[in-house]
Design a protein around this nucleic acid. Structure first.
Lengths: 226, 226
DNA sequence: GTCTATAATCCGATAGAC
DNA sequence: GTCTATCGGATTATAGAC
């Protein structure tokens, strides 16, 4: 990134934000040094402290700002009334659009929670819980009206959010599918999951009991392969 | 962890592995120092180099070993023949069981890919792709036989894997649901998603166009809230 | 195999000139 | 607001005694 000549407050601030998003999304917060960030922006490392008090505050501002945006945008997109199906459709379309448009920020919000200090983490987790509840309420309502058939709405909430949030881990703007196509595909999958009319197959007893912890001997053999 | 007196090769090796899994899962690879790791094991930092050549090799061994275990366990669990529904049921039950039993290792395999150097990353990504293909083949087969109805099997592959893999981000052994209950719930959701007989609702035009990038002014207001 | 000691580098954060 | 310079400490990795 080109060197910015002279004084320029707001421009530098936005450049730092964008560079930080990119570096943290790529390498992670702990692996990003402030010298790296300053070089990407085109300023000296010490100058960064005109824009935050310390590295932790920079991360928290990024994540908190994004969560506020997310909530505001969801509230604007969500229907206050209507059938559960219509509201779930809206929720899914919004979630896909948001994750496509702001994949980096969304990714950081999931992956860098571990890097937040306790107080900052608590604030973000509370906002996250509110967000989950909005989906959970739709699912609960749909089950009450008979539109949805879910064995466990809490698990369904986590499953749907994980499924949709996964988008930000592999989505590329130049990819095969347009935003509209992805919205339609994912809406179809989410609705099918929620309606879930079918019964699970009789489970093959024993299948679930497969060994998931390898023997010490197999581990040793694996090490030898390298 | 208690100090291990005297020489003890294999015991130390396993202790390092377990401590590394815990620390990396909790704080991340970049944030874990070798001094921290050594302290957790109860040895001095320099002694770690009897067990790996450098920090990167330690991470790669952890991830690669886990991927080998995962593949071997899946192959043992998966039915070579049978209906697509039966095979998808087996796949899901296995995936849930594995993620419940080894949540830490699975989590690291997703979250620390970014910390792998290029050659190591390429090796892991190749293994990951093989794994995805095994699910993709089941879905393709099911669509061909008419058991499944999916608009896009590639998206469905990614969606199902994200949904199941999400388990390792929130699962706690002391949680509300047993492994068996989770297997049944998730199998039901995955099968419903794959069968997906229903059509999506007519989409509310305009709903997808909601602003996902806030105005500069709103951002400034948000910053003021703090 | 474990220890102590240390090399060489990098880190976040601060001070003060302009 | 940006720069240069630096402080104090932490980091990975190595060397050599036991």
């Amino acid at each position: 990134m080109a060197r910015i000549a002279g004084s320029s407050g707001p421009r530098t601030e936005e450049a730092i934000r964008r560079a930080g998003l990119k570096l943290i999304a790529t390498h992670g917060y702990a692996a990003m040094s402030l010298r790296q960030l300053a070089a990407e922006v085109g300023i000296q490392q010490g100058s960064l402290y005109n824009y935050f008090r310390n590295k932790q505050e920079f991360l928290f501002d990024l994540i908190r700002g994004h969560m506020l945006d997310l909530h505001a945008a969801l509230d604007a997109a969500l229907l206050p009334e209507g059938s559960a199906e219509a509201r779930l459709t809206r929720f899914t379309e919004f979630h896909v659009a948001y994750h496509v448009a702001r994949a980096q920020e969304v990714f950081i919000c999931y992956s860098e929670l571990r890097s937040l200090e306790p107080d900052n983490l608590a604030a973000v987790v509370a906002m996250r819980r509110d967000y989950e509840r909005k989906l959970g309420d739709i699912l609960d309502h749909g089950c009450a009206t008979g539109e949805f058939r879910l064995a466990d709405t809490r698990m369904a909430t986590l499953a749907i959010l994980a499924m949709l949030s996964g988008i930000c881990t592999w989505y590329k703007p130049e990819g095969r599918l347009s935003r509209e196509a992805m919205q339609e595909i994912f809406t179809g999958m989410v609705l099918a999951l929620a309606r879930g009319e079918t019964q699970a197959l009789a489970r093959g007893e024993g299948a679930a009991e497969v060994a998931v912890v390898p023997s010490r001997r197999r581990r040793a053999l694996q090490a030898g392969v390298g």
